[in-house]
Amino acid sequence: MHPAPSVIIFTTFSGLGFGLLAWLGLGFPDVSGGTAFAFFFIAYALAVGGLLASTFHLGNRKNAIYAFSQWRTSWLSREGIASVMTLLVFAPYALSLIFADTALPFLGYLGSILALITVFTTSMIYTQLKTIPRWNMPLNPVLFLLYALSGGALMAGEAKVAGVLILLLTLLQVAAWKMGDDRLSSTGTDKGTATGLGSIGTVRMLESAHTARNYILDEMVHIIGRKHAQKLRMIAGILIGALPAAILLLTPAGHVTSFVALACHILGVIVGRWLFFAEAEHVVGMYYSRD
């Protein structure tokens, strides 16, 4: 899949934003007044900024309001609704902490649950796609939730909790990379089933249907950059997890160490999300494969 900057930014930063909101709703850190303003400003900026970034890959934004209508069947629609509900529920919670020094725990808990539901719906937009076997596995939503929770804990200043979560996240991410490598072949889809000609013999593309590129190739048959995938996985694994976890768990907690760990982590998540898209093979590629 084409690793478009808009979707990488969207999944990375809205995930972090909703992750931070989930912790803030539970009272971690226990903030009020100006500090609360700072925390909620960052969380809202990340969540809303990410969501806005996602609209940049829309071809026809003027119909965006209809995207809230199909929650019965569409994960994308559910995500839109869940994200708006989360942001709305947190607004009175944040305002009451900032201006009245009063926590409204019920709203906080509700908001935290909604924030995690939002992240889950985001993950399901990708996980639901049978056409992209690498995404179509139960570990995918678990990872999205762990990314949000560990990044959120890191920003909430819960250094030790974040360290443990990040360690777990890194192990699962490495497992997901390994499992993902076998997904396409395990579906049984190949050029034979794609063309239905496999029962006659080995299928090879003689001529593509078009000499120029098209939307399908640009969007779904991204193969550039896969040759460095192993190196990028190593880099992502170190930045997402190994380095921040070591900093968080082995050094005394402090603003500087947390900031370094967070910077590493975010950079790693961006590399990881680039890989998430770039490595994902869409079965339509079978029609174009020259192998």
Binding site: G59, N60, T131, I216, E219, M220, Y287
Partner: peptide, 19 residues
């Protein structure tokens, strides 16, 4: 009603939809 998000094209195994 279409917003051009492209998710339907992602969901199609056959490459039958083009934005």
């Amino acid at each position: 009603r279409c917003i051009g998000c492209g998710l339907c094209a992602w969901a199609c195994p056959y490459g039958a939809r083009e934005l």
